[in-house]
Structure formats: C-alpha cells, structure tokens
Measured scan of single mutants.
Amino acid sequence: KLLSSIEQACDICRLKKLKCSKEKPKCAKCLKNNWECRYSPKTKRSPLTRAHLTEVESRLERLE
C-alpha cells in the first residue's frame, strides 16, 4: 500500500492505542462500548529543516 492511502484509526482508538477496525460511521470498538466515534483530519507533519537536523546532530555528539 502507498503511504498516502493508509487509513487512520478513529480518535479514541488512537488515543487509547487500540486496534481500530476503521469502519465508518462507527468502528467496532466504539460501537461495542457506545463511545462517540470521530475521525479527525490527518495532520500534516512539517518537513525537517536543516537547522533542526544540525541541532539534533550536535546534541547527539555531546551525549556520545
């Protein structure tokens, strides 16, 4: 599967780190437990900047 097509777990399953069936409108866990089942939009991760990478590398060197 391509990364862009990976389905996201519902908010509660993601928060509780449960295996989500990803069914809509309610996944199996939410249906069974009568929880409100919501699927928040995916958040875009910002790409690493060179400055951040350099900072992490220098912190790693100090720890070694």
Rank of each mutant, 00 (worst) to 15 (best):
K26Q: 15
L63W: 00
L31Q: 12
D11K: 01
L31V: 12
L60T: 02
L18Q: 09
L18M: 15
E64H: 10
Q8A: 11
K29M: 07
K1M: 15
I6C: 13
K22V: 08
R59D: 00
C27G: 04
L60D: 00
S46R: 00
N34L: 11
T54D: 09
L48Y: 10
E61Q: 13
R62N: 06
W35S: 13
I12C: 12
D11S: 05
C37W: 01
C37Y: 09
L60P: 04
C13R: 05
P41I: 03
A28S: 06
E61I: 10
C27Y: 04
R45V: 00
C10D: 00
S40P: 01
K22D: 03
L63A: 04
K29Q: 06
L48V: 01
P41R: 02
E36A: 12
T54H: 05
H52I: 04
E64K: 07
E7A: 09
K19D: 01
P47A: 06
C20K: 06
E55G: 09
Y39C: 02
S21F: 02
L3Y: 13
E61V: 15
D11G: 03
K24I: 15
W35I: 14
P41H: 06
K22T: 02
K29N: 04
E64A: 04
S46A: 04
K44H: 08
S21K: 03
L31P: 05
K1Y: 10
L48W: 08
K19C: 07
L18V: 01
K22Q: 08
A28I: 14
R45Y: 01
L63I: 15
V56I: 06
L18H: 11
T43R: 08
S46V: 01
R59H: 05
V56F: 02
E55P: 02
N34Y: 11
N34S: 12
C27L: 02
R38H: 13
T54N: 09
K26V: 10
R38T: 15
E36R: 11
C37F: 06
R50Y: 07
R59K: 11
P47D: 10
S4L: 13
S58N: 13
K26R: 14
P25L: 00
P47C: 05
A9W: 03
S5K: 09
E7H: 08
R45M: 04
P25D: 04
A9S: 04
K29V: 02
Q8Y: 13
L48C: 05
T49E: 02
R59V: 01
N33L: 10
K24D: 09
T43N: 07
S5A: 12
L18N: 10
K1S: 15
T54K: 04
K19E: 04
H52K: 05
P25G: 11
R14G: 05
Q8S: 12
L3F: 14
K1W: 01
R62S: 09
K22L: 05
P41N: 05
L60V: 15
E36V: 14
E57C: 05
K26F: 15
P41C: 05
E55Y: 14
H52T: 02
Y39E: 06
A28G: 11
E57K: 03
T54M: 09
I12E: 11
R50L: 05
C13K: 02
C20E: 07
C37K: 00
E23N: 14
R14P: 06
T54W: 08
E23H: 13
R14Y: 07
R62Y: 04
C10H: 00
E36T: 13
H52F: 06
E36W: 04
A28H: 12
E64L: 06
A51P: 01
K26Y: 13
L53Q: 03
W35L: 15
A28Y: 10
C13H: 03
R38M: 15
R38K: 12
K24P: 07
A9T: 03
D11V: 10
S40Q: 09
R38L: 15
W35M: 12
C30H: 04
E61P: 01
S46Y: 05
S40N: 04
L15Y: 15
N34D: 12
P47H: 03
K1A: 15
P41D: 09
P25H: 00
S58W: 13
S40H: 01
E57Y: 06
L63P: 00
I12T: 11
L31K: 14
E64Q: 14
K29C: 08
L2Y: 14
R59I: 01
K24V: 15
K26P: 04
I12Y: 14
K32T: 11
K19R: 14
C37L: 02
K19T: 07
R62A: 14
L60Y: 09
S5E: 10
C10G: 00
